[in-house]
Every structure is written in structure tokens, then in C-alpha cells.
């Protein structure tokens, strides 16, 4: 469960987010939508511990994000990330990218994950040798490699065509159905068909629209 209370954030003098309260249930698929520059990525960054809010509090599975001692360990244990650009390391093979931060003992789980994401044929290839859709699925596999409680995805379909976008959202939907919380910041309206809960971010404020 993720609970954000009174989130307020400023970049210099410019206010990006104003007094936002948000509650994300365990295993839900939450979408943060809005226009470019609306503040949805800022909100996602705050919810995912990447950014400290100017004011307010975020509790992730009971822990106040400001009070987490070892943030790296916390992220490794709790959070998975998927970004618009896949950010796969170009000199590592797909499988090595997926297992970059994974426990060595979890190889069986990684095999299952790779099969589940349908990328077993490309696991020994380098990122530049596979398609954009495959790269993004590999990035999702990497985010899932440590069995996180929550996956944050920032514009995960931003560089994909509509067919591949549908596949990625369906995959994230399935991940949420299996019990992992999924929070997606996107301006892709296709998410409407997949998310449990949709928030619209506009001028630094949030309203639930679905």
C-alpha cells in the first residue's frame, strides 16, 4: 500500500504539485495521466522515492520514504522501475540486463519471468539486436527480477507503436493481477482499458477520473 499525504513540490519558484493526497492499494493498477508538463512524472518520481517532495509524506508499505536508511537496499527489495527509454545497458546481453540487480539464487524465477514475457528467444542477444517492443519487455523483466512489491513505470509505451503499447499495458495488467502493485505515468489513453484506477494530473493537482 502506498499512501501520499499533503505532497507539495516546487522546482525553484515554480510549483509542480500542490497538496496532493493519494492512496494506492496493494495489487492495484494505477494510472497517472495528464498532458506533457502536467506534473505526472514528478508525482511518480515522488511516489517511487526518486524525488523528495518539498513538503508532504509518502509511506510505502508502511515505511516513510524519508526515514528509509538504505535507499538502495529499499529500492532493490521493494521497487521495480520501467522507463520510457528502456535504458538497457548496451554491452550486456538481454539476460544479463535482466539479472543485473537480481539475486543469483533466483535463476529459476528469472527463467520463468523470461518465458512469461515471451523473450526467451532474445535473452542472449544484445539490446541493439532486438525490436523496441522486445526491449521494453526486457526492461519490464528487469523491473520484476527482484520480485518487487510495486512497479513504477514512466511512459512505458512512449517509444512504442499502438500494437506494442497494448501488449505492454496488458503485461502490466497481468503483473498487477498477480499481486504486484503497478503505477504508470502516461499520456497514452489506451491505459483506460487496463487500469483499475485513473488519476488525472493537471496544473499540479490530482483528480480521480476512473
Amino acid at each position: 500500500m502506498i499512501v501520499a499525504t499533503g505532497i507539495h513540490h516546487k522546482y525553484g519558484k515554480e510549483t509542480a504539485l500542490r497538496d496532493i493526497d493519494i492512496h494506492i492499494a496493494q495489487g492495484s493498477f494505477v494510472a497517472l495521466t495528464g498532458e506533457s508538463g502536467s506534473g505526472k512524472s514528478t508525482l511518480l518520481s515522488i511516489l517511487s522515492t526518486l524525488l523528495r517532495p518539498t513538503r508532504g509524506e509518502v509511506r510505502i508499505f508502511g515505511k516513510n520514504s524519508k526515514e528509509v536508511g538504505n535507499i538502495d537496499h529499499f529500492r532493490k527489495e521493494t521497487i521495480g522501475f520501467v522507463f520510457q527509454m528502456h535504458y538497457l545497458i548496451r554491452y550486456l546481453r538481454i539476460r544479463q540486463n535482466i539479472t543485473l540487480a537480481a539475486q543469483k539464487k533466483d535463476q529459476e524465477y528469472i527463467d520463468t519471468l523470461i518465458r512469461y514475457l515471451g523473450i526467451e528467444d532474445i535473452q542472449h542477444k544484445f539490446p541493439h539486436e532486438v525490436s523496441g517492443g522486445q526491449r521494453q519487455r526486457a526492461a519490464i523483466a528487469r523491473a520484476m527480477a527482484n520480485r518487487p512489491k510495486v512497479v513504477f513505470a514512466d511512459e512505458p509505451t512512449g517509444s512504442l507503436d499502438s500494437k506494442n503499447s497494448q501488449k505492454v499495458f496488458a503485461l502490466l495488467r497481468d503483473i498487477a493481477d498477480k499481486g504486484t502493485t503497478v503505477v504508470v505515468a502516461t499520456h497514452d489513453t489506451a491505459i483506460m482499458d487496463f487500469a483499475d484506477c485513473i488519476y488525472r494530473v493537471e496544473d499540479g493537482t490530482v483528480s480521480r477520473i476512473g
Binding site: 495528464g34 498532458e35 506533457s36 508538463g37 502536467s38 506534473g39 505526472k40 512524472s41 514528478t42 511518480l44 518520481s45 526518486l50 524525488l51 522501475f81 522507463f83 520510457q84 527509454m85 535504458y87 514512466d154 511512459e155 505515468a185 499520456h187
Partner: peptide
């Protein structure tokens, strides 16, 4: 700071 991965071209 991993925030750079989000800040690149996003809202």
C-alpha cells in the same frame, strides 16, 4: 541520481 532517467523528456 536516477531521477535523470525520468526527467529526460518527460513531464
Amino acid at each position: 541520481d536516477p531521477i535523470i532517467l525520468i526527467q529526460r523528456g518527460c513531464a
